[in-house]
Computed example of a mutant assay.
Amino acid sequence: MPELPEVEVSRQGISPFMQGHTLHKVVARQRQLRWWIPDEVVDLQNQSILSVTRRAKYLLIELPKGDIILHLGMSGHLKVLPANTPVQKHDHIDFLLSGDKVLRLNDTRRFGAVLWQARGQLHPLLAALGPEPLSDNFNPNHLSQAFAKRRTAVKQVLMDNHVVVGVGNIYANEALFKAGILPTKPANQVSSEQINSLVAEVKLILAAAIKQGGTTLKDFSAVDGKPGYFAQQLLVYGRAGQACVNCQSILSDIKIGQRRTVFCSVCQI
């Protein structure tokens, strides 16, 4: 599944072709994605695009009457193409733009979503989200309060979108390694020093991933068709059974909350 850096890279990629342009028409060849695409989206015509923003892993295309909400799901990706580009398999929805361009959503598994949020309203999927990890609201004090009464494994709490949004499996593995925190450690036993380090590492790792174009995933490529490059710098994720880059111990591999978790039992405590 594309994680926050991949979604942010997508936002950066499509924004120049959308913001300040006009959405002329929406063509939905398949309306049944994770949820049914609502009429409010399909019926849109000749709407000015005010901005393209991101909240967690959701992209929001801001129009005068409301926002189109896009989620890439497990395998979705967006590309801006010439309007006459032939349709390929799994090209489910087109947003026809001024300048003879089209924003096209391709989603093999159809776990993505195209939803609607009327102006002045907040979609239920966005209502209970925690702070953005790169914002000032994600800070040691916030994380300390979130951890204080949680006996759950710290990795699961870090991936809870009510605590902080967008820290998916790849980057949770990496941040916990860099902060020296055992992923199975109960959240309420994480020290203040470790919390300070974890907040800093989450911000550094996500910012670096965004800068480098997102992580290379088999189902993801950036809007320009180029894959991300951050996978070359992953220290633990995908390296189970290999030597730790710090101490040369063999990295362990377990499942926490059904998600693969790789860590160093020596460096992480």
Rank of each mutant, 00 (worst) to 15 (best):
L134S: 10
Q156C: 15
R110L: 03
Q156F: 12
G168E: 00
A118Q: 14
L158W: 09
D91L: 08
R110K: 14
V114L: 08
G168N: 03
D94G: 06
Y171A: 13
G112T: 07
G166K: 00
M159E: 13
N141M: 14
L158Y: 10
Y171R: 13
F147T: 01
H142R: 04
K149V: 09
D94K: 11
G166N: 00
G99L: 04
Q121K: 15
H142Y: 05
V167F: 01
S144L: 12
P133H: 08
K155M: 12
A146P: 03
H142M: 06
H162R: 15
D91I: 06
H162F: 12
L126H: 13
R109P: 09
V163S: 00
E132G: 14
M159W: 03
A172Q: 10
N141D: 15
V167K: 01
E132M: 12
V163I: 15
L103V: 07
N137D: 12
P140E: 10
G112I: 03
R104P: 08
V114N: 07
L134Q: 11
G112N: 12
N106Y: 11
D94T: 06
A113F: 09
D91P: 06
A148H: 13
V165N: 01
F138C: 00
V102Y: 03
P140Y: 08
F111W: 02
L134K: 10
G168M: 01
F111N: 07
Q156I: 11
D100Q: 14
L103R: 05
L97P: 07
A146T: 07
P124G: 13
P133R: 03
G168K: 02
R109D: 05
L129C: 05
L126N: 13
F147N: 02
D107N: 04
W116S: 03
F95L: 12
L126E: 13
R109S: 11
D160K: 02
L103S: 09
G168A: 05
D107G: 04
A146G: 04
N139C: 04
I93Q: 11
I170G: 05
L134P: 10
L143N: 02
L129S: 09
P133F: 09
N137A: 07
D100Y: 03
E132V: 04
I170W: 11
L105D: 04
P140K: 02
I93T: 08
N141V: 15
L122H: 10
L129M: 09
S98R: 05
K155L: 06
Y171M: 14
L115K: 00
L115H: 01
L105A: 08
P133N: 11
L122N: 13
N139E: 04
H123P: 07
D100C: 03
G130T: 14
M159R: 07
H162I: 10
Q145S: 10
A118Y: 10
G120V: 06
L97N: 05
F138W: 00
F111Y: 14
A172R: 03
L122M: 13
G120S: 08
N137R: 03
W116M: 05
L96I: 15
V114G: 03
I93N: 08
L134N: 09
H92D: 12
G99D: 04
R110T: 14
T108D: 05
R109N: 09
L122G: 08
Q121H: 13
A113Y: 08
N106A: 08
V102Q: 04
V167S: 02
G120R: 11
L143G: 01
V157W: 03
